[in-house]
Structures are given as C-alpha cells and as structure tokens.
C-alpha cells in the first residue's frame, strides 16, 4: 500500500472541503468585515438537515444535499439582512451574535438528535483499484464535488459582473456604492452563496466523515487558520493554504500523535503569522 499516494489523496479530499467551507467565511469577512464565528455551526446544520432528509424523509442524498444548500442559502440571506448588515461596523457585536448563534445551533443539534454521531449515506460506493493504491469512489466524488464547485465559484468571482462587484465592495464599500453598485443586494447574494457552499461541504463531510454536534468547531478552527494564513481578500491564497493545511492534517498525525500533530499545525500557523502578519497573499487585516 502506497503511503504517499494515500496521503496525497486524503489531503486533496480534505483540501477541497476546507476550501469550500472557507469561501463563504472569506466572502463575508472580505466584503462586510464581519467575522462569522457561527460559520462552522451552519456547516454542521447543513449536515444534520441532509441526514434527516435522507434518513427520515427517505430522500436521495444528492437531493437532500441540494435542499440543505437551498435552506442554508436562505439562512445566509436572512443573516446578512439581520445580523451582518445592522452590526457591520461593530466587530464585537457580530462576534457576540455569532458565538450565541453557534451555541444555540449546537444545543439544538444535541436536543434534536442526541450527542451520538450519525452518518449520511455515502454518495458513492465501491473502490477503484489503481494498482499502486485503492481509491474509494466516495473520496473521488467528494473531491470532484469540491473541485467543480470551486471552479464555478472562481468563475463567478473572476469572470462575472457579480464577481467584479464583490471585488469592488471588498476594496471600497462606499466607493462601490457611489458607482451604482447595489451593495446590499450583492452582499445578500454573496452571503447566500457562501452559506450554500458551506452547506455542500457539511453535507459531503457528513458522509465522508460523520455528523456530530461538534463538527462545526473543528472546521471553524480550520477556516479561521486558513483565512488568516491566506490573507484577507485573497482567493488564490485560500486555495494554496487550504491545500497546505490539509496536507499538514494528513501528514502530521502519521508522524506524531494526534495532540502533538494538532499543536504543531497550530504552532506553524502562529509562526507563519508572526513572519507574515498580512498572511501569505492578502492585505493587512
């Protein structure tokens, strides 16, 4: 069994999901300046919605994922209107509200589903034998979904009018508004899109890994580290640091025990931020 190919596959799968989950957070952070600490909780919520639509309503898991993404997009729009927009200039209030939301959603998950972990049915079964290693269809599908959505997102950001408006708002909100860009409308769309991407990541990871009330905490830490390391406003940075972080997460536990690996990964982030406070690719936060 090839260890290195397996590590690379694991890193690619994790990276695709880390990036997908981080994009929504980064959009909101870049455009609205809001640190949505509840982003991981919404990722978790999407996983639970998908699970219940599959397990209780008997829906196909792809349909369930799509519905979860739509629900989360709607929540994102509501969040933009009633949380991010009113508290736009008040960093501490957004943090407080998002922490409260995070706690509420976690408790809701525990109350509704109990604290045991559950699993969304796999999006693909079977194994591909590549000769030097085996690759499960589930990993392949998870990676491909991440990749396709990433390409679509990049296309929207770099090749469409909406993307240009997003960039303009990120750089100068007032200036963008003076140029006739409907800032609130764009922000609403972007929040919806970001939440939907997190929903897809949650629904995929709920099958690839497991669904639990604390799954949002783990991804939150990754999202924060990833966005900080990438640097504010950098899409390319998110892609590169997303892969690096996933690689660290895949390699470190093989060399060290889980705690040491986690501590080393976090220390690496702190050191890198000390060396490059702006992150690798972005402007100063």
């Amino acid at each position: 069994m090839g260890v290195i190919p397996n590590i690379m596959v694991n890193a690619l799968v994790l990276a695709s999901m880390y990036i997908l989950a981080s994009l929504g957070f980064a959009f909101i952070f870049n455009m609205l300046g809001s640190v949505n600490l509840a982003h991981g909780a919404f990722y978790m919520l999407a996983a639970y919605i998908t699970y219940y639509l599959c397990a209780k309503a008997g829906l196909n898991n792809w349909v369930a994922m799509l519905l979860a993404a739509i629900v989360l997009a709607a929540i994102g729009i509501v969040m933009e209107r009633f949380v991010f927009r009113p508290f736009q200039t008040e960093f501490d209030r957004v943090v407080m509200v998002s922490v409260a939301l995070m706690t509420m959603l976690q408790q809701l998950a525990v109350q509704v589903s109990g604290s045991q972990t559950i699993s969304i049915p796999a999006y693909g079964n079977g194994v591909l034998d590549l000769g030097f290693m085996t690759l499960t269809n589930e990993k392949l599908i998870t990676f491909l979904v991440g990749l396709i959505l990433l390409i679509i997102t990049l296309f929207i950001v770099y090749r469409t009018k909406l993307g240009m408006q997003m960039e303009a708002i990120s750089q100068d909100r007032l200036g963008a508004a003076l140029q006739g860009i409907q800032v609130n409308k764009v922000a609403m769309l972007v929040c919806g899109m970001g939440f939907a991407l997190a929903a897809v990541a949650g629904a995929m990871m709920g099958a690839y890994q497991q669904v639990s009330s604390n799954m949002g905490d783990n991804i939150n830490v990754r999202i924060l580290m990833l966005v900080m390391l990438a640097g504010a406003g950098s899409m390319n940075g998110i892609l590169i640091t997303g892969f690096l972080m996933a690689l660290l997460d895949s390699v470190c536990p093989i060399i060290w025990d889980s705690y040491t690996a986690s501590a080393i990964a976090c220390s690496a982030v702190v050191v890198l931020l000390l060396i490059r406070p702006k992150g690798f690719f972005g402007h100063e936060m």
């Binding site: 069994m1 694991n10 972990t117 990871m205 604390n214 997460d249 536990p253 093989i254 889980s258 690996a261």
Partner: peptide, 30 residues
C-alpha cells in the same frame, strides 16, 4: 488519537502501516 478527532484517514494509515493484522482498542464506538 484524540477522541474528538473528525478526520481518521491519517490515523488509519498509521494503523495500517504498523504492519499488524489486527487492531484492538476500546473507546468511543463512533
């Protein structure tokens, strides 16, 4: 491994790489 881990792919690789034919342990069933 950390009982609150969510990604077990690397831990599994470590177990497989140990060369053992069986892994034994207790802990959280999930």
């Amino acid at each position: 491994y950390d009982g609150e881990s969510t990604d077990f792919s690397s831990i599994a690789l470590k177990i497989v790489n140990s060369g053992a034919d069986c892994f034994i342990g207790n802990g959280t069933p999930d």
